[in-house]
Design a protein around this nucleic acid. Structure first.
Lengths: 223, 223
DNA sequence: ACTTTTGCACTGACCAGTCAGTTCAAAAGG
DNA sequence: CCTTTTGAACTGACTGGTCAGTGCAAAAGT
């Protein structure tokens, strides 16, 4: 039932298909990138099932056969896209946290830096974010396990900072780390998606300031 | 090409097909309810496009034709489902806010009550919530305008309380009402969905407490 | 009382169209 | 030369929507 074609996945295939993130693309990698970009916007707009492989190929400016030369199936293309995107986000979050720590900032500063990193990511890849949110809590899907793994990787970065904050006494030891991390992610996610969807003209700084205020509990009390 | 039966739609017809919301269900309304319930879980699990009308009919224990007898199309069924569900949520939020106000609580108390109402709603209708989140930011869809309208109704309830809080000096007048409302909604939404998806055994009070703490800025500082 | 008619709600087989996936011969490319 | 891409053809399964017909309870007729 699977591919019985001639199974391309040869040895040299591995050579040119460098790991995601590899800059200088072989022809292969460039094609994959184009397919990712085409797929992400289409699936974000229409959903996975409503998006046809023909559409993806057309938008990528590539023949349908090429899609199946590069990916075993539509699902596999999507799964690798998911891994690719969340990988970028996770790296970005980790980077923001580390940078803030190196700069001698507090843990709350680190959280704030991560909020900004999240906003920057969503600003740059709104379609991916949207697609991710749409799929995250869906059950009974082929890529559910993949999704859970990458989600955990991303959330873990936030949880780590929270945990360190608690250990050092900067944050209350009564907070629920897992839930608080979820809530923070949700705060950024929804605020940012609403921003891009309904008020795209606003500046990132503006949005960041509002979320920052909420994070630091400067909502109640009029000064 | 239309009905050549004998063209029914008489006066008596209006009697049995009561308007949506009519309590004592006619046969019609009961069927629609069954279809809603079947559709909401299926679409939450698989997405709109991946869910077939045959599946919906089967799960509702009804023939396919009945679906089209009650709804003009698959899309219309979905749209009415959306309106129905968000209507419930909005009413619940408003109720929580009003109740809190009557009880002489502060605006923050009202927000807290709304957070709880949101959690209760998601606890009761996790599938609907999941489906709603998956569709909310999607563009180029037939029901996009419907979605925006109902979203605004729900968010407006939160915004109203925030605005009142600012006017009365209980909340900082520097907060961005729209963004803060989005962020609060996101906080509850994501925390609750993660709760139901990954730790369904936890109690609602537990989750509520964690979010409450975040709302009131009792995160920083190891009291 | 009883028969007959009406028309609402529902049925399910059916149709026309669509799609993911496959295959392949030939061209491009490096 | 060997890899990669092309593009068109094909298939087998599936889908949204249609429609002629059924069942039945209330209304009308007698």
């Amino acid at each position: 039932m699977t591919a019985h074609r001639t199974v391309p996945v040869t040895i040299r295939a591995m050579e040119s298909s460098n790991a995601p993130g590899g800059a200088g693309g072989g022809r292969r990698e460039a094609t994959r990138q184009k397919l990712y970009e085409a797929a992400v916007t289409l699936i974000a707009e229409q959903g996975f099932s409503a998006t046809t492989v023909d559409e993806i190929a057309e938008r990528a400016g590539v023949a349908k056969g090429t899609v199946y030369y590069n990916f075993a199936s539509k699902s596999v293309l999507f799964e690798e896209l998911l891994r690719h995107g969340v990988g970028l986000l996770t790296a970005s979050l980790r980077d923001a946290a580390d940078r803030s720590a190196e700069g001698g900032g507090s843990r709350v500063d680190a959280l704030d830096a991560m909020i900004r990193a999240g906003l920057v990511f969503i600003d740059r890849y709104p379609s991916f974010t949207q697609l991710y949110v749409a799929e995250l809590w869906r059950t009974n899907r082929a890529w559910q396990s993949t999704l859970m793994v990458v989600r955990q990787e991303a959330v873990a970065v936030v949880e780590k900072v929270l945990r360190e904050g608690v250990e050092e006494g900067e944050l209350s030891d009564e907070i629920d780390i897992g839930l608080t991390a979820s809530a923070l992610v949700g705060m950024v996610l929804v605020a940012a998606l609403d921003w891009k969807a309904f008020q795209p003209e606003r500046s990132l700084d503006d949005v960041h300031a509002a979320l920052s205020r909420l994070l630091q509990g400067r909502v109640g009390g009029n000064r």
